[in-house]
Amino acid sequence: MTRHFSLLSRLLHWLMAILILAMLFIGVAMVSSLSDYHRLVSIHKPLGILILILVAIRLVNRLFNPAPSLPAGMPAALRFTAHASHWLLYALMFALPLVGWGMLSAAGYPIVLIGLLHLPPILPHDAGLYAALRPLHTVLAFVLFATFLAHLGAALMHAVVFRDGVFQSMTR
């Protein structure tokens, strides 16, 4: 039985951890800054698409390289919470960039990544759609940040309180 995640799984996890945390901080900073707004938005859009590509690779990898099983002694409620929170993280990693891309489409913005690299719209130009998706993007971002905090807390619990090898399954 495997005790830890595959090398590719660990690489994807830690790379995406850095990118997503940076993305959340950039997002919350840019919507409350006049002077840094443009600089940060210009990073936010291509970074979001990079995260979308990485999470698609990660999902495929997860199907081929399943996660190691949790400790046998872990109570059922904790096991359920662990699995549910991981699938919630996957859902949000897909949803946030897609909602972001969709809301820019619905607003009629060109979707600039870098230089001449543009993405096509994925939704029609529609005021009502934009008005629904823009606040949804914010709500989902706060849900993702809260889920990340829970994930961080749980990882540290495994590392220093339970000491059951779960934290080490992602660090080595």
């Binding site: 400790p71 002694g73 339970f162 059951d164 090898g165």
Partner: peptide
């Protein structure tokens, strides 16, 4: 506390109980 893989322990591992926390 030694870092013993919990999978080697029987069900109802005491380290997850509220009392030990």
């Amino acid at each position: 506390m030694p870092n013993i893989p919990a999978s080697s322990r029987p069900d109802g591992d005491p380290r997850y109980t509220l009392a030990s926390l």
